[in-house]
Write a protein that binds this DNA or RNA. Sequence first.
DNA 1: AAGTCCCTCAACCGCCGCAAT
DNA 2: TATTGCGGCGGTTGAGGGACT
Length: 277
Amino acid sequence: MGRSPCCEKAHTNKGAWTKDEDQRLVDYIRLHGEGCWRTLPKAAGLLRCGKSCRLRWINYLRPDLKRGNFTDEEDELIVKLHSLLGNKWSVIAGRLPGRTDNEIKNYWNTHIKRKLISRGIDPQTHRPLNESAAVSTRFGYLNHEYPNTNTNNSSSSSSVPVAELPIMKPTIINAPSLDIDEEGSGTTTETEPAATHVKTEVNLELSIGLHPFQGETARGSPRSSAESRLRERSPYQFGSLCLCCQLGSDNGGECRRNCQNSKGWLFGVRPSALGSS
DNA sequence: AAGTCCCTCAACCGCCGCAAT
DNA sequence: TATTGCGGCGGTTGAGGGACT
């Protein structure tokens, strides 16, 4: 039993985003903040599915994205985190400020995997290739389900305390411009080399605190605390209502409900999540 | 120069968990 | 308690472009 589609497919664009679409999305979010993805496309004048807008924003247009090549430190951190978490890309991304889960996932599949294999390491088990083959055969481990990863599971959440995971700490973040590149090149601006936005330092000790803004939520992991919900929000998201709610035209109440469901509350946090009722 | 192969990565798809009703 | 609908996640696809023949 599949879900009903998240939007009417008949009247939505698909495929690569145009410069104009990017600009509309950026302009809209700049004015109204994130939230209410379902109604955002209509409010922003986009013929796109809400999910598509969300993805485009998260993975490409967000102003705090780092972009540029991965550094050796990031490489190392990704490998380490993957050995602990398996394919929990969103959690891994939460430890690398300015990187998205999609970006890390792609980078893993195209670069790191190959690098590990060339070093004789099984990218799934992080053990020597011959050894991991033997181990997985003997114990029936699948993928990253081996003793020191704690990612066995159907519960899909790692038992590694997230707060104890390594993190790459940003020391300087200059908010990059939201402006769309004049040239466009099919997409949008790559403002400046990443290093000018985020200077990072790696701490591979497993005792580092939480990154202030990026969440460590994984599918299935607890997301109930107000703190973790707050952490999930980027600073520019806070206090946002969708356009229709701000204008008081909420599609007959539907949007108001949706916004309250999701991001409409103060700081994007439901009162109940803050402990009030 | 043309054709083919290979790689990268943006975007899509389907599913899940959670909260509201 | 069951249903609904949303945001979010991980896996996968395919267009575009570079490398190679």
